Amino acid sequence: MLHSPPGRMAILRALKLGDMLCAVPALRAIRSAFPAAEVVLVGLPWASEFVARYPAYLDGFREFPGYPGLPEREPDLARLPGFLGEMRAERFDLAIQMHGSGRISNAVVAEFGARITAGFYEPGIMCPDPATFLPFPERGLELRRLLQLTAHLGIPPDGEALEFPLSEAERSGAAALAHSIGIGSRDFVCIHGGASVPERRWPVDRFAEVADAMAGRGLEVVLTGSGAEVGITGAIARAMRAPAIDLAGRTPLGTLAAILERARLLVCNDTGVSHLADALGLPSVVISTGDNPDRWAPADRIRHRVLCRNSGVPAAEVLREALDLLSEPRRPASSPGRPLASEVRDVGRYAGSLL
């Protein structure tokens, strides 16, 4: 529990796009509780774009140079001492560890030298401070774990909805791209066959089977992915009987999101784009692996169908859920205090490593 409002706070969450989107409800709650506070994200290099997209919740960005034992980036050991010294010099009132269980990341946050530190700690390992640290939950959706932490700090929740604000320029760019590839006024579905972890990728031939079934029902098929996933989208296209539009590597993140916003449905692996669909209100069928649904599935299981089988998910099951979603009218995404499009700062290019 916090006993006084912090003036300046740093939040460590040096992770990829999907992980960051799951943190938006917690960031919204923090802003609602402390509207005058300066909130700085400590994140991976790409996350400067994330901060620019959420000016209603985040005020600044500090690039995290990595740390031994944290796998998200190779640590820049020469840069690390200077970075930690700069963080201490900023004299933050509060530093929150939102980067996993805390086994390693709590030591990082402690080095920030904030007046108060908070976050998760791993059960069985010493708790830094019971007033501000919470045992890392073994189960539960990621967004709810983070909301449990903010609630532990006395911060009331402000809804569970994800958000991804878009600028008018991004929507205009997506409209122009849609017109140029012939889907300006046509119904289409997006197929996203990539994932940063190869074990999360559903087989190419099954994506192709579902895509052909969609095309057979009069829908255009758009294959999405990063530049690093051109090989995957190309393999899906070659395995299909029907033609498909391959946009892999052709869309900045905002344009990709604006294309998804126009789609009827997304079929994808358990990766960052599934959280993007959740934030945009786009119905989706997500093929998941292992115990990931318990932590990473969208909270809305009506709009988003998550399929996970130890023996593998058959294409027929994905198609059945896809057709059921397509039979329903598109519901708008909830918008809890969503920042206006005009408030989104200029952001850069979409990078495949984000997902």
Rank of each mutant, 00 (worst) to 15 (best):
G194L: 04
E209A: 15
A131F: 01
C127I: 05
A178T: 00
R139T: 13
A174F: 04
I104Y: 10
V210W: 07
W202L: 10
L146Q: 14
G119S: 09
C190L: 08
S167N: 05
L166G: 06
F92T: 04
E122Q: 12
F133N: 00
I116V: 15
S196M: 09
F188L: 04
A95E: 08
L162V: 08
H179S: 04
G193T: 11
F207D: 07
I183P: 01
L149D: 08
G154D: 06
G193Y: 07
P203M: 08
I116F: 00
A151C: 09
D158V: 13
R91A: 15
W202Y: 13
G184P: 01
N106E: 07
M126K: 06
S185L: 03
P135T: 02
P123K: 00
L162E: 11
R139P: 00
R115F: 02
Q148E: 03
I125Y: 07
R145Y: 02
D205T: 07
F188I: 05
L147D: 10
P130V: 02
R144C: 09
E163W: 07
T150L: 11
L134C: 05
R91S: 06
S172Q: 06
A131N: 01
A114K: 07
R201D: 08
I96H: 02
D187I: 02
F92C: 09
F207T: 12
H192R: 04
D187C: 05
F136C: 01
A175H: 00
I155L: 08
V210G: 10
V210N: 11
V108R: 12
P137Q: 03
L94Q: 10
A107R: 15
E209G: 13
G102Y: 05
T132A: 02
E142W: 12
I183G: 02
R103P: 03
I155Q: 08
D129N: 13
R91K: 15
H192Q: 14
H179N: 06
T117E: 08
A195I: 13
I96Q: 02
E111Q: 15
G194C: 10
A95Y: 11
R200Q: 14
L146M: 15
E199T: 14
S180H: 04
A95S: 15
G184Y: 03
R145L: 07
S105I: 11
L94F: 12
V108I: 15
F164W: 15
G184S: 02
P128D: 03
R186V: 01
L134G: 00
L153A: 05
I104C: 08
A169P: 00
R103L: 15
E138L: 12
E163P: 08
E160N: 13
G102C: 10
E209R: 15
R115E: 14
G140S: 12
A176E: 02
V210D: 09
A169C: 01
E209P: 05
A174S: 02
F188A: 04
